[in-house]
């Protein structure tokens, strides 16, 4: 949000540098069941973001002291691969990825029926293969598909997307340039059945009006992302059925 550029991010016709309108998200591709060892997995592309998510569990909780005798815990680890960003990222967790892991774990705990598995852990691993603004949303979107793919009981499949502000315009799903040189970023995730918010962050500068508009854009887009998540999961099982009828 802090950077400054002379680049025009939104032109006089409301067009953005990648040819999108203010209310359009980048192309999204979702695939479920992409890894063989993990109990559930998903691959998500949102624009130039490429993200893998894998789920193991419910399984015995390690370290033991984290066990909860009444419910399972959801432990998410978000990791950016060294080559996922323009400057090589030093391997290992930093403060940013630890924070993202925490809020994603918490968002997922809201929907997973954790009380069914006391003392257990449901482990979610998010690997960012390529980053281009919006990786936490892409990661959470992938993680919820992976959880459903693992057969984990949950209330809803959580979609996530960001809205923000650049050149004074409220925009959906900021790209790298808009994120770097814009004025605000609001990633959110919802439970589509109730529109309750399970993840929310904001940084930058927005008026109440702008914020309300951003939330409206993001919530609407979350429902579109959700349709793609559902479609990816159902596609996984329509394929074998076709083979079966050969």
């Amino acid at each position: 949000m802090s950077g400054h550029t002379d680049m025009v991010l939104v032109d006089e016709n409301g067009m953005r540098i990648d040819g999108r309108t203010e209310e359009q998200h980048r192309p999204i591709k979702i695939e479920a069941g992409v890894l063989s060892n993990a109990d559930g997995s998903a691959y998500v592309e949102i624009g130039k973001n490429k993200v893998l998510a894998a789920v193991y569990g419910p399984r015995e909780c390690h370290p033991r002291h984290l066990q909860n005798p009444t419910k399972a815990i959801v432990q998410c680890k978000y990791n950016m691969q060294a080559f996922s960003v323009s400057d090589r990222k030093r391997p290992g967790p930093d403060r940013r990825s630890i924070e993202i892991s925490k809020i994603i774990s918490e968002a997922l705990e809201r929907v997973v029926l954790t009380e069914l598995y006391p003392r257990a852990s449901i482990d979610v691993y998010i690997e960012i293969l390529q980053a281009n603004a919006g990786t936490r949303c892409a990661g959470l979107t992938a993680a919820s598909v992976a959880l459903a793919d693992a057969g984990i009981p949950m209330r809803d499949i959580v979609p996530a997307i960001a809205a923000g502000k650049a050149d004074g315009h409220v925009l959906l799903d900021l790209n790298k340039e808009e994120d770097n040189y814009g004025q605000a970023d609001v990633p959110i995730a919802i439970m589509p059945s109730t529109d309750e918010i399970v993840l929310l962050q904001m940084d930058g500068n927005m008026t109440r009006e702008e914020f309300d508009h951003a939330i409206e854009l993001a919530v609407n887009a979350c429902h579109e992302v959700h349709d793609l998540q559902v479609d990816a999961l159902k596609r996984r099982y329509s394929k074998p059925a076709q083979e079966g009828s050969e």
Binding site: P153, P192, L233, A241
Partner: peptide, 9 residues
Amino acid sequence: TREIVVPGD
């Protein structure tokens, strides 16, 4: 029919 559903459906 074997209708596939996902969580939340």
